[in-house]
Amino acid sequence: MKKILITGAAGFLGSHLCDRFIKEGFHVIGMDNLITGDLKNIEHLFPLEHFEFYHHDVSKFVNVPGELNYILHFASPASPIDYLKIPIETLKVGSLGTLNLLGVAKEKKARILVASTSEVYGDPLVHPQNEEYYGNVSPTGPRGVYDEAKRFMESITMAYHRYHDVDTRIVRIFNTYGPRMRLNDGRVVPAFMGQALRGEDLTVFGDGSQTRSFCYIDDQVEGIYRLLMSDYTDPINIGNPHETTILEFAQEIIQLTGTHQKIVYKPLPKDDPLQRQPDITKAKEILGWEPKVGRAEGLKKVFEYFKSLTPEELHDKEHRDFSGIA
């Protein structure tokens, strides 16, 4: 039985990856410091013989006894509300955490896939964004703690690949949504749905003409799985190329939820990307991957998930601190 370490295992994306690799017959070791993750996302796995969990911060020394075949490094705050609150921890997990896990991969001769992001492109001057584009990022702006942590992650990963011959993969993840997202994490889908379900006006930043491209979680996990099992070592975009404006998306949410809130406008945050759309040519050609779940279908599934939350979860005070900016 193959053994895989998944960091950030209690997070939104990490928990779905744990599910997938259990289903594929792996022995899964989950690791998370729970700074943004939630054990509720993986509690259904605790009774399983081939799942184990360690409460640990990968920015500190990481030890995994015995044989290890694969590592997925997904430990990182992934939304503005998180990484603006804990900027130092965000930088550390992208730098020291990645360094520690690359060391484990080198020692164990394990293949490691690191989770980068479309944010490495910053506020792009190329549209759609392909993997050859170097980006337009402010290293000293408020979002720089996340953007530059991921850019460093890519650099040190390639350095270990070239210098130490570590078997590495890099995925650049574009906006992903699905069940288990936190209402209070600041990303667009849960922000708008939470506001709609609470009967609040939907907050749009700027004039709403900025664009995003939303990929359903099942498609994202499939792309990551295929990349890990491939022989491709350069960064690759995994996301849904169907682009929409934030204003159009807010209107979709109002229609989906059957609510009648107004849309209110606030100033655009500093360094907020005006365009985000992946070029997935490489994913199609190299991995044979493209998204299958349309936005209407995916949003219905997420809406049912958020409707199932308790009133306490839906009205968590922390939701007052954010609106959809990711």
Rank of each mutant, 00 (worst) to 15 (best):
D218H: 02
R143I: 01
V114W: 10
F303G: 06
T257E: 09
V64L: 04
G178N: 04
D32P: 12
V171A: 15
D32T: 11
H260R: 15
S323Q: 04
G66Y: 04
L314K: 07
P273M: 13
A326I: 08
Y70D: 02
V120R: 03
S213F: 04
I112G: 04
T98E: 11
W289V: 12
G141M: 07
L113W: 10
E290Q: 14
D38E: 14
K40Q: 08
T157V: 03
S79P: 03
Y133T: 01
P179G: 13
G206E: 06
E132A: 11
G30P: 01
D165M: 09
H50V: 01
I280M: 01
F12L: 00
A10Q: 05
E52I: 09
L5M: 08
A196F: 04
D165Q: 14
G239I: 12
G239K: 05
T7S: 15
L102D: 08
A105R: 06
H27I: 07
S118C: 14
I325Y: 09
N175T: 12
D165S: 12
F12Y: 04
K40N: 10
R320K: 07
T176S: 14
E297H: 02
M153V: 02
M153R: 06
S116R: 06
F74P: 02
R182Y: 11
E89D: 08
M1W: 00
A250N: 11
I112W: 01
L99S: 04
K262F: 06
V171G: 10
E52V: 11
E318K: 15
H161C: 09
G103I: 05
F174P: 00
G25C: 00
H164M: 10
F192H: 07
H55K: 15
F152G: 07
D316P: 00
M181A: 11
A115K: 03
Y70K: 07
D271E: 15
A196H: 06
